[in-house]
Amino acid sequence: MLPSHGRFPYSGIVNRPAFTWPGDKRLAVYFALCVEHFSYGTGLGLPYSPGLSHPNTYNWAWREYGNRVGGWRLIGLFEEYQLPITVLLNTECYDHCPELVAAHRKRGDEIVAHGRTNSEHQNGMSPEAEAGLIQEATDAIRKHEEKPPRGWMSPGAHPSANTEDLLAEVGYAYTLDWPMDDQPVWMQTRGGPLLSVPYPHEVNDVPMIVMHDGTAPAFADMAIDNFDELLAQSKHQSLVYGITIHTFIVGQPFRIKHFRRVLEHLAQHKDEVWFTTSGQIADHYASLFPPPGSDH
């Protein structure tokens, strides 16, 4: 048999118990906004000019545009439509661009731990080093938000084989690292159950725009088409739709123009959809379906 992660068994989506989201809605929609900071001249990070040697001012400045400009423009856009944001936060942003994080705090946006910086990935770290990374990011959010984060998304979407165990051991309720379903899935870990909340790999500006050279109109069309199809499918079964964007990618002016079209289209269906955060999705699902073996 092939090696297995051992976290959860196979389950076809057509064989699941029925349920609804709050307000008797059947489609939960959340927007994941990645707010990131990168080391200058070292480490990892998305390249728009691959092959250039470090220090790479061009790539660093492209990514920094999101903190100085794009992130602010996106906050204004979401304010325009009065929609919540799930912020996937590199905790180095607390020191680097605290005003931007404070603006999300003022809105009441959920803060999900997204490591310290996207200049480093967990996969390949020793368990001790990874545990230290998780603890440092957790402590930073607890300090600044006055409560610990409940959700985690690994920098670069690149967790290790130990990540889920380490998250559960320090009290995380859910992870966004496993884009394998349109409904939440309970995972087994060394530290107890951990919920996997659906996260978009496809409707995500990194693979679509940066890796696959997708255009701004094409990304908007993808997001709208995915919404329309999931809304139709949700008539029969409650589902989750996440859209992931980055401040330095969709935060570019010509992409904001087309992303506004996405929000306008989705807002027309506000009576049919639960616009929410990943944490609220996790809470509601766990209240309906406690982890296997639970006494609740």
Rank of each mutant, 00 (worst) to 15 (best):
T189Y: 03
A232R: 11
S4D: 10
G23L: 04
G242Y: 03
G70R: 02
P184K: 13
S196Y: 01
R190N: 02
Y30R: 05
I249R: 00
P291H: 11
S238F: 04
Y81L: 12
P292Q: 12
T163A: 12
V170H: 04
A137E: 13
H284F: 14
Y94V: 00
P98A: 06
N204F: 10
H269W: 08
N204L: 08
A18D: 15
P98I: 01
P50M: 11
T20V: 15
E272G: 03
E128W: 00
F38T: 02
V29L: 15
F19I: 06
R261N: 13
N118T: 11
M222I: 07
A223E: 06
L33M: 14
D205T: 00
Y241R: 03
V273N: 00
N56G: 08
G242A: 07
L88W: 06
Y30S: 07
S49C: 05
Y241W: 03
R26C: 09
P159G: 11
I111S: 02
A61Y: 01
Q233D: 14
Q268P: 01
N118K: 01
L88R: 04
S294T: 11
Y58T: 07
I75H: 00
L194H: 05
F78I: 06
G151I: 01
R7T: 13
D177Q: 05
D109F: 03
K235I: 08
E272Y: 02
K257T: 08
H158T: 12
R260Y: 04
A286F: 06
E128P: 01
E110K: 10
A32R: 05
G45P: 04
I85H: 04
D95A: 10
Y40W: 15
E128N: 05
Q82M: 09
R190E: 00
A140C: 02
A32P: 02
A232V: 03
Q135S: 15
D205C: 04
G70L: 03
E229Y: 01
D181Q: 08
G71D: 07
P3T: 15
L2F: 07
